[in-house]
Design a binder for these strands. Structure first.
Length: 574
DNA sequence: GCCGTTTTCGGCCCGACTGTTTTCAGTCG
């Protein structure tokens, strides 16, 4: 993805400037821009529409650099800087406890140019000659190198929440602990997490720190202070725990939730009003104005409460100042799931088991969307199997009144954009979602044409996992999003928000773009066993991150309303 | 390098922990 490439370059530029001890604000500008660009999946569209400067933190200069990258494949300014500070030197920054100052020192004094050289000189003792470096620092560097070599991978949101829940639960049980909250990117429900942040309310901070370090799943203690401790969990993820008083819980939660850019924005706004915000509260001079809850903190700054999922500094601060934040969709609004598999194709649970689990979720309907005939590897259903499945669903629906099970399919879009079943069969389904599983490397024009043809098919209600990205496996296939979203909107084809933690597709910035084109969304978990139905929360979170309200999301409608709102007019009399 | 109901110039968020010091710089979030 080009946005990632540009983001990496901006980050590298920031790092080089840091080592060169450039103006810290320029460095911050590059870092902020890197984040903004990384979160922007439709960067290419913005380059073509010449709207880059609408992005937060992108001005004339950076917009020109982004354009330069899209037209030439490189950025002149960066090529020049790379000659001044070699790439290997930048890699030293990835070592924990080593920052720009140390890197500069090592490079200037000992000509250390990469991690291997640093390790050699750490072991042979030649590091000890450098100012401010003694035995303990050498040990930390060696430990840091080990951590980097192992690779600090990001964790998917579901795994990270599982680990976070363990720590939160264990900390809650401690005597004197009044409250525990997960904070950080996990509370903002980002797709992946690099670490876990937990906030604890207790008057006995040191007892909490001690107990934390003794927990079973703690592999290593990185730093332990009076109110703040960092450990590595046995899964390899870092867990940061901070203890505060109940009085400043809101201020601490706000600070600890981030994002960093969001915090910087609201602190800047506070400064203009002669106020100061830190993790203990919002102050006028020495006088505390608010600190107990996030709600009162936002109120004192003069803005609306911002839901954690929206705190990315992508425009939400401006909306909150104008009192124009959207009312976001919530889990309790969700009445059904549009994408689940059963053991008829590649799922592990029976239709009945899936239905029971859906009932427990409080749903009113569940669409069983097994794969279609051509996807043999996933046990795609032929006509005979479809008849059997329909019969089973009809029988179950007779027994069960609270939940309606719907006869659906996830049908293949073939390499030309044709739909796997004949129209006659497709008309027999209650609901049809269509997706691409083959020909993923086709050129952009062809993939876009396939998707648009699928949208134009009268029986296709939803395009499932529209970009095909799969975490750690493959990126999105190439799509002309403008054209695709226009077609979806025009044909009233709904786009899926796939809630499976490795997919989360469409991503939030593309959902935002699609919404501006008038597209509606259906959240589907892509469950392959009944326990997967709980992934709905990640789909809802993604929708919230994109600023969607109930009105944007099909799952908030009763199924009869879904049918009426859909593209197949002949079904509306149902 | 960005940005503007104080400004197109002069600002730009704030504190905890560590190691090496004896008052603080560097790193991190």
């Amino acid at each position: 993805m080009k946005n990632e490439e540009v983001a990496d370059i901006f980050r590298s530029i920031a790092q080089i400037l840091e080592i060169q001890e450039e103006n810290v604000f320029k460095i911050r500008a590059y870092n902020r821009a890197a984040e903004t660009v990384r979160n922007c999946e439709n960067l290419e569209e913005m380059v073509h529409a010449d709207t880059l400067t609408e992005l937060a933190g992108i001005g004339k200069d950076l917009a020109a650099k982004i354009k330069e990258y899209f037209s030439t494949g490189s950025i002149e300014h960066f090529e020049k800087l790379k000659k001044e500070v070699p790439q290997g030197v930048l890699e030293l920054l990835s070592i924990p406890t080593i920052g720009p100052k140390t890197v500069k020192l090592l490079y200037k004094k000992l000509r250390i140019r990469d991690i291997d050289e640093l390790e050699k000189k750490a072991r042979d003792g030649s590091l000890l000659g450098v100012e401010r470096i003694k035995e303990k620092t050498v040990q930390n560097i060696l430990k840091g190198i080990e951590i980097v070599r192992k690779g600090k991978q990001r964790f998917d949101i579901a795994s990270a929440w599982e680990i976070a829940s363990y720590y939160a639960h264990e900390l809650e049980r401690l005597p004197g602990v009044k409250k525990v909250s997960v904070a950080g990117s996990l509370r903002r429900m980002k797709e992946t997490a690099k670490d876990i942040d937990i906030l604890v309310v207790s008057k006995k901070a040191s007892a909490v720190m001690d107990a934390l370090c003794r927990l079973d799943r703690v592999k290593e203690v990185l730093a332990k202070g009076e109110t703040k401790t960092s450990v590595i969990s046995r899964e390899g993820i870092q867990v940061d725990v901070r203890v505060v008083d109940l009085e400043c819980f809101g201020a601490a939660l706000l600070y600890f939730t981030g994002s960093k850019n969001h915090n910087v924005r609201i602190r800047t706004i506070a400064v203009r009003k002669n106020l100061k915000i830190n993790e203990y509260g919002i102050f006028k001079g020495k006088k505390l104005l608010a600190s107990k809850t996030e709600e009162v903190m936002y109120k004192k700054i003069g803005m609306q409460y911002v839901e954690p999922e929206m705190r990315e500094d992508v425009g939400e601060v401006e909306l909150a100042l104008k009192n124009e934040l959207p009312v976001l969709v919530e889990q309790k609004d969700i009445l059904g799931d549009f994408h689940v598999h059963s053991n008829y194709s590649d799922g592990r649970s029976s239709i009945e088991e899936m239905a029971q689990a859906a009932k427990k979720m409080g749903y009113r309907y569940l669409v069983i969307t097994d794969h279609s005939q051509s996807l043999k590897v996933a046990g795609g259903l032929d006509e005979g199997a479809l008849r059997k499945k329909k019969k089973e669903i009809d029988a179950l629906n007779k027994k069960e009144k609270a939940l309606r099970i719907l006869f659906g399919t996830e049908v293949e879009i073939d390499s030309e954009g044709a739909i796997d079943y004949d129209t006659e069969i497709l008309e027999g389904f209650d609901f049809v979602i269509a997706s691409i599983h083959t020909g993923l490397k086709q050129p952009k024009e062809q993939i876009t044409r396939r998707l648009i043809r699928a949208c134009e098919h009268p029986c296709v209600d939803v395009i499932a996992h529209p970009t095909g990205k799969l975490r750690g496996v493959r990126d999105s296939y190439e799509i002309d999003f403008e054209a695709f979203f226009a077609a979806a909107s025009h044909t009233k084809t709904v786009l899926e928000i796939n809630a499976f933690p490795d997919r989360l597709d469409l991503g939030d910035s593309l959902v935002r773009l699609a919404k501006t084109k008038g597209v509606k969304f259906a959240i589907g978990t892509d469950s392959h066993q009944f326990s997967h139905l709980s992934f709905m929360r990640y789909g809802v979170a993604l929708a919230r991150r994109a600023g969607l309200g109930r009105e944007d999301v099909l799952n908030t409608l009763a199924f009869s309303e879904v049918v009426k709102s859909g593209k197949r007019p002949w079904r509306r009399k149902e």
